[in-house]
Computed example of a mutant assay.
Amino acid sequence: MTRRLAPLLLAALVLIAGAGPAQAAGYRYWSFWDRDGDHWTYATQGPSMARPSDGDVQGFRFSVSEDSGDAARPRGTAEFAAICAGTPAKEGTKRVALVLDFGTAADAPSGEAPPAGRTACARVSPDATTADALAAVAKPLRYDTSALLCAIAGYPKTGCGEQVAPRDEGAGASSQQRKSAAGKDDGGPSAGLVTGVAIVAALAAAAAWQSRRRRNANP
């Protein structure tokens, strides 16, 4: 019995040793952010639904991320007074400061290079949405059939929220993504490790039961 169990135990140990955290695929898209005090928060509404107030700062960042918790934030200056310094207030309108971060070369679609990031101050009607403000300062915009924002100022030329295969976290990934991946790796044992431990425990219990049975059968 012990000889028959040995190969299974070895296989389980190999499973444990080789088990590692699975890499989830990411998506390449424009994320939308609100400026809350001195930091960015992921917007809870899409740009076509959000209606910013006069003096608000909002941002867009193009990157590859798994979800909102992993998404990279816009970079650069994000102060309303600085962005809208050259756009005085006007009765019957509102001003919305926009931060446009086109991302990094690592996140760019094949054959494209991200433009330099920039800011813009949109003067729009009081009931305008963020999408209206964006259209006023960053055309051409591109949307898909489900109203997902695909391109700002013509970037990227193609694609819209497409899935991107997992890649080496140490090569090309942003600092934000590497930190997120590191945090996920430290969150607990992988499924393969748990499964391997369970197999070893089950086989050990079976071996012990068989040994007791043989001793009882041959006093």
Rank of each mutant, 00 (worst) to 15 (best):
P126Q: 05
S63W: 01
L141Q: 08
P52C: 12
P88G: 02
Q210R: 15
A85E: 14
G76E: 05
P21I: 00
S174I: 00
A106D: 15
L15I: 04
P115M: 04
S190H: 00
G117W: 03
P156D: 12
S175N: 09
Q45E: 15
G103Q: 01
W209E: 13
W40M: 00
V99P: 01
A85F: 07
A19G: 10
G26V: 03
P52L: 09
G46T: 14
D38Y: 03
R123Y: 04
V57S: 01
A133D: 10
A128K: 01
T158W: 05
E79S: 13
D132Y: 02
A191M: 04
R51S: 11
P7L: 12
L141A: 10
A128H: 02
A202C: 06
S53I: 00
R4I: 08
P52D: 09
M1C: 11
Q176T: 11
D132A: 10
A138H: 05
T93N: 08
A191R: 03
A136P: 04
E79I: 03
E169A: 13
A202L: 14
A6S: 11
D144C: 05
A78C: 05
E79K: 06
D67V: 01
D168T: 06
P140K: 03
R123F: 02
K139P: 04
T130Y: 01
K184F: 08
A120Q: 08
S175F: 07
A205N: 09
G37N: 05
G55P: 03
T2H: 08
L13Q: 09
L5P: 00
L149V: 02
C121W: 09
T158C: 03
Q177V: 03
R118Y: 12
D132K: 02
L9G: 08
H39A: 15
T44G: 08
D144F: 11
S190E: 13
Q163Y: 02
Q176M: 03
A116R: 14
Y42G: 07
V124D: 12
D185K: 09
A171G: 00
A19R: 00
S146Y: 09
G69M: 11
S190Q: 08
E112C: 08
P47D: 10
T93H: 15
I16S: 06
R3S: 14
D168F: 12
S110V: 12
N218A: 15
V99E: 01
Y27M: 13
A120M: 08
G154M: 03
R178H: 01
P7K: 00
L203H: 06
G55Q: 08
A71I: 00
R215T: 14
D185L: 10
M1F: 13
Y155L: 05
I16R: 01
T44E: 14
E91V: 07
A24W: 05
A191H: 00
A82L: 07
D168C: 13
L149A: 06
A171Y: 06
V200N: 03
A135Q: 12
R3K: 11
L8I: 04
A89M: 07
R35L: 15
G117E: 07
A202I: 04
G196T: 05
A89Y: 03
G196K: 00
A24C: 03
A89P: 09
Y29T: 13
A204M: 12
D34Y: 10
D36R: 13
T119W: 06
D67E: 12
A108C: 07
Q177R: 10
L8V: 06
A6F: 11
A153P: 07
G154Q: 07
A201R: 04
D168A: 15
R3E: 15
T129Y: 06
Q210T: 09
R28F: 02
A182F: 09
R28S: 14
S211Q: 11
